[in-house]
Nucleic acid binder design. Structure first.
Lengths: 210, 210
DNA sequence: AACCTACGGTAACAAAGGGCACAGACCTAA
DNA sequence: TTAGGTCTGTGCCCTTTGTTACCGTAGGTT
């Protein structure tokens, strides 16, 4: 944990801040596919991602889902922070996309550090900024693009995040993330296969060149 | 300006902070319909909204628009802040929806106050939080709702923001905000009129009960 | 009055995407 | 090996939304 923290954050955080994180933070290692945060849940600590990737998604009353964005190394979830600070319930669900290592920091500490450390303040701001921009991208994507493009973007991002050109998902799972139906995903994937951009297999997709 | 500031912010801001705002801020009064911030523009100061409403929208490369949310009294634009802090170009366009009074605060001051005033820090955080939540609402709306519902929501919000049950917009303007076509808006509005939820006129819509 | 333009109504058609149904392939466990 | 479940492919049809085209009308201008 110490090495990870140092490697990722030492350029942004004061040494004493890193010491505090080491002291106050709780290391968590979570395998892929676990829900680490759910809608309606109260949150008492926020995660700093040391390795792996977390997928953040939104769900409406009927249970329809939509992938919002991924969190990667060195990032944290601003929506979660917003919930913490506002003492409100989580608005989102977070699921580990890969095996993940993170430090959980209690909310009180994070408020304390806001006043105390410039590095922390900047980090928190940058996070908000990044999240806002990611959300804007998401809005663009669903507002301005058609499903073909969204699917391609999705697959690209997935390859990048998992660092694996074999996407180990069923069509149904992809459909959930994009908020569409399995049939539609199968159809579009077949089209992409015909265009030689990927090869379809049972339970995984081999991405060639998107 | 002083009275407005006191009335809106005195419960959240330290007195000395209000004094600084009075000293450093520049009062702006803008009539409805003006673009006060555009995509690609660099931003050197951020607005604190004293009265009126500002509509914030997104545009893609082809010029397609989409309304993101409104800013109202006491609010500020976090996306703008994000741009300021990150020294990047604006990602959004902001247009006054009604006649508007605001105080423009230079970016350097706002950074300075972050360290100095707890009230300011909290305010900035709450703003980010509110903006994130508004954006999530927007995502919900375009991802999970059909146009009928989105149009109704849009009209409701418009009535609320302008405080006027006569919506003075052409169908084309509404179409831009919702990122659809004029014909479609006319169709749906006619449907709502048949359901006695509103009455259509040339250049304005009289909302009865949505 | 004659004209022009902006706005709104409507029909007809097109395209995107979703839903249903069913078949075949694969996988596992009994 | 057989049975049952899961995953994918595909045809058909429906709904929603977008597009094109055309018309009537209100309002302003000359």
């Amino acid at each position: 944990m110490k090495e990870d923290l140092l490697e990722i954050f030492s350029s942004h955080f004061e040494q004493s801040l890193i010491d505090e994180i080491l002291q106050e933070g709780r290391l968590m290692e979570v395998p892929a596919g676990e829900t680490i945060m759910d809608i309606g849940q109260y949150i008492r600590s926020i995660p700093l991602l040391l390795s792996g990737a977390i997928k953040v998604l939104r769900e409406d009353e009927e249970g329809d889902e939509l992938l919002l964005y991924y969190l990667e190394q060195g990032e944290t979830c601003s929506v979660t922070m917003a919930c913490c600070m506002g003492q409100t319930k989580s608005e989102i669900r977070a699921i580990t996309e890969t095996d993940t290592k993170m430090v959980m920091v209690p909310v009180q500490k994070m408020e304390e550090w806001m006043a105390k450390y410039k590095g922390w303040r900047n980090y928190v701001f940058e996070s908000y900024q990044n999240r806002l921009n990611e959300l804007l991208q998401t809005v663009d994507s669903i507002a301005f693009k058609n499903l073909d493009q969204r699917l391609v973007d999705y697959l690209k991002k997935k390859v990048e995040v998992t660092n694996d050109d074999r996407i180990r998902n069923t069509h149904q799972e992809i459909a959930y993330d994009l908020h569409t139906s399995r049939v539609v995903v199968s159809r579009l994937l077949k089209k992409l296969e015909k265009m030689k951009k990927l090869v379809l297999h049972r339970n995984y997709i081999h991405v060639i060149d998107l």
